[in-house]
Nucleic acid binder design. Structure first.
Lengths: 147, 147
DNA sequence: CCTTGATCTCAAGTTAACTTTAGAAATTAG
DNA sequence: CTAATTTCTAAAGTTAACTTGAGATCAAGG
């Protein structure tokens, strides 16, 4: 094992499929070096990078946005503590926003349960906050956070 | 306008595209009657039904699960207050679960910001709660709630 | 050295949730 | 009644996020 991790190693460490890691590369999320044989060589920092991706995904962030966030980190050298702190803080803001949105919706629903949703005019479900109209084909942004 | 709403009316009322409403029909979410000319005729209750679908979707519920929830409601007649209350309560439980999951992750992240994510062994991002392995092709369940 | 396993690339398949298109028939507006 | 909308069906396209497959090459163990 010359330098760095193979894609298989990285797969074992992160739990991601090898194919997924290659796929992420095409989306600019990781940018491994190559050895003489043309095989990918990853650095230790890439484990953390991918872990961040996985965590962000469980929150519903689209890959495109995750990739943007990661643009702030150095591609081939280990990021500094300041780098990660900055990214993590931005992440926390998003989480807070989602918790707030869910809490708001829960409160509205409580009103709905009481009224039995019989009056359409004042129903919170009937009048959702901000409906974003159709924007072409493809799956919808289910979590409506992308802000 | 004989009886009921046309698909265009329903579209205007809910903000959903006509094509989306037809699509939902193929997935058992609405089951309109037909007039003499073969055009779909919806009842007033379908507005609420679709509103529920939209709200559930913003929470990240997949259509399949939403459809299941709606199986409890009568197809062609207006649902009773008890019907909606039951559905809404199940919905609230899901919301609570998601708020809890997000709060938990936020707490872990706070620890991460402090440590700068420099120790992989104890990093909450590196060791996510329960990673569900690959289960075939298609988009991943981003919100990880489907429970 | 040879075989087995890991990687490589590129193309095509998959799922979810819809949209778009096309040609035909029904409704509605004037 | 005619022109303009709306709706109908069925099939194909779209996006995201990956997986699967095929054929070739690289790497590691005995």
């Amino acid at each position: 094992m010359a330098t760095g991790l193979s894609i298989g190693d990285l797969s074992a460490r992160t739990g991601l499929a090898v194919s997924a890691i290659r796929f992420y590369e095409t989306h600019g999320i990781v940018a491994p070096l190559r050895n003489d044989g043309g095989h990918r060589r990853y650095g230790r920092a890439d484990i953390r990078r991918l872990s961040f991706v996985m965590a962000a995904q469980t929150l519903g962030f689209p890959l495109s946005e995750i990739a943007e966030n990661l643009q702030g980190l150095p591609a081939h050298k280990a990021p500094s503590k300041a780098d990660w702190t900055r990214i993590s803080k931005g992440f926390r803001v998003k989480i807070d926003a989602r918790i707030a949105a869910l809490t708001d919706l829960r409160d509205k629903l409580d009103g709905c349960i009481g009224c039995g949703c019989l009056s359409l005019q004042s129903c919170a479900l009937y009048n959702p906050q901000d409906v974003k109209g159709s924007e072409g084909a493809g799956p919808r942004n289910l979590t409506g956070l992308d802000g």
